[in-house]
Amino acid sequence: MSEKYISRSKSVAARTLGGEMMIMSAKDSTLFSLSEVATLIWEAADGHTPLSEIVERRICAEFDVRSDVAYRDAEQLVEELATRGILSISSRPVPDAQGPAVEAP
């Protein structure tokens, strides 16, 4: 299995409000809300932590789920987020990856 590295898009703005992660695409002003699991993955998308490690440390450690199932679901999720321009996926670490600052108001 080849590793996947995910990084937050630089062209989005993100804030947590009422426990919900809200992300706005700066390209087309589309507003997204992420589920709890999607938020964990999005927050961990630093460009140099492999997706498999994110799943192990952030998902499997917190939820009662088999790692192969969690990884498969995470793959689907990041591909969907990438399609929407919120994340980018790379087969190598992305050295200068940086996402938007995420603050809870």
């Binding site: 062209s11 989005v12 703005a13 804030r15 409000l17 809200m22 706005m24 695409s25 700066a26 390209k27 087309d28 002003s29 507003l31 938007p100 108001p105």
Partner: peptide, 19 residues
């Protein structure tokens, strides 16, 4: 405008307002 800086500012402004 579909300008990334402006969109981000408006979004941040809306969240700040609601809070």
């Amino acid at each position: 405008a579909h300008d990334s800086d402006l969109v981000a500012r408006v979004f941040e402004g809306a969240v700040e307002f609601v809070s």
